[in-house]
Design a protein around this nucleic acid. Sequence first.
DNA 1: GTAGGGTTAG
Length: 634
Amino acid sequence: MDKYQGIGVQQQALYNTKFMPVEFSYTKAKLFRSIHSLPLQTSFHNQLTITNKRAAEQNCLTLLQLCDSLPKLTQLHAHIFKLGLRNNPLVLTKFASTSSDLNAIDYASTFLFAADAKTHLYDSFLFNTVIRAYTQPRDSKHNGIYYYKLMLEYGVLANKFTYPFVLKACAGLGDLSLGKTVHGCVLKVGFDDDVHVLNTMVHMYGCCCGGIEFGRKVFDEMPKSDPVSWSAIIGGYARLGMSIEAVGLFRKMQISGVRPDEITMVSVLSACTDLGALELGKWVESYVERENVVNSVELCNALIDMFAKCGDVDKALRLFRNMTERSIVSWTSVIVGMAMHGRGPEAFSLFEEMKGAGVVPDDVAFIGLLNACSHSGLVEEGQQHFYSMTKDFGIVPKIEHYGCMVDLLSRAGLVKEALEFVQKMPIQPNPIIWRTLITACRAHGELNLGESITKELIRNEPMHESNYVLLSNIYAKQFRWERKTKIREVMEKKGMRKIPGSTMIELDNEIYEFVAGDKSHSQYKDIYEMLDEMGRKLKRAGYVPTTSEVLLDIDEQDKEDALNRHSEKLAIAFALLKTPPGTPIRIVKNLRVCGDCHSATKFISKIYNREIVVRDRNRFHHFRDGLCSCKDFW
DNA sequence: GTAGGGTTAG
């Protein structure tokens, strides 16, 4: 009798106090009450037989579905103990498979695999659920691998469901050698004929540095490919920035007769975005409409991102406005889009609108917003948002957020403040932050400071090319040519090369890429004639070449020639030749646009009466009638 | 009872 009473009291206590968390919504609470009161009580009042134990277990499982965080789980778990259902793996595994709270997953898995737990309970299913649980949250993939290793150690056989989880974990870690090891295991146990396993394998290789060739091999040798396989390989190339290959593969996919779905189209769109290929992107949009591809939120997000980053931010905004359901990514994409086009105030009002709509900004949204401040020179607003991020939203700033702040201060010319900010940062500054600061030093004449920071950086990171380029740029600005030459020698000795600047342009469904002094184009003679004519017209209009941008020790005339052969100018000359008067020109540069090209493009837009849209590494410049939308702030 | 590919920032 006592026993039953005891349970009654426990249940009562549970019922009245802790176990009903206030944050449960009404429906959930109602459900909870009904589940909790009826079957459990009946089963316990009828004696604790095996059948009743199962029923109690069932109830616990249902209750577990309502547990979405660690506190709720621990309370329920304590209750399970009291009911004598101790160490029931099923209960906790069920939880691990549905929770997205990393702490709770840790709790469940630690408990399940504690030293005194009974190993005979362990089977593939149990391990699979735990490994899967760890593939969900960010930064926890190594735990998935840990449990896979434990599984092997315990002699539990991995089945065909195990490998997709394990490969996903490898993908998340980007660990190629680990991925290869797992690949070897798959071959050994003979799951290499399973389409799920193979598709995840392609995906895994596509996520690992230097792995895409292996992924391609797996893909090419697959006995049968479906939209998932194609999406995995196209997505792999797109992620790497091998966008031409990604688009080429999409064409092959169409020929092969496999019907692309909405996920394939997202990958194709991200390749278009990378290429800045607006026409191709528009084609994808029409394809999606024509073929009735499912219009998912993610697909729409990808379209918004594409339009914003290929120059048509108004179209991106229209798409955003027409969405019936929006995710945080939709908001962030459109905010970032506005920021890239120098429309800071609109980015801000969208951010406010987002908060008003009840969408809680995450860390990425703040990076976008802080970037908007940076591109528009809004120092105070940026600082306010930076503090509000922690104060109002409890987001701990990451290195990227600090990076945004350094960028914000640097661009505004507040080099000293930026340095002070870096010195006061609670986390170790990374090389990206130092490079931001060095660029600012160079731009705002703090050459000695820039030199000493760069030297320090090179000591810590001797194999990074851009550090040497930065130092050599500082020397060039100080006219210390012998030092500059020495840097170049050091780089050559170490086998490093500066990334060459290149400009892409899309004309008549073709993408052309130019590098400085490029003569590989079949019409190069016409292009160079056009360049010379442009040069003459520009000078007449009052353009003065910014020869200080040339970082070589050559005479003034040679410097002018070098400037005149920059890839941006080649692409513009080509566009002037090939398109009818008045057509807008869109070009995409892989690095930041150079100061001289920026000033020359302003003149070109006026002289030739063209709107010229330039996407550089960081943002957009809209040139019209002799002016640029960035207001010379970039 | 358990499985595959996707979007924002850096």
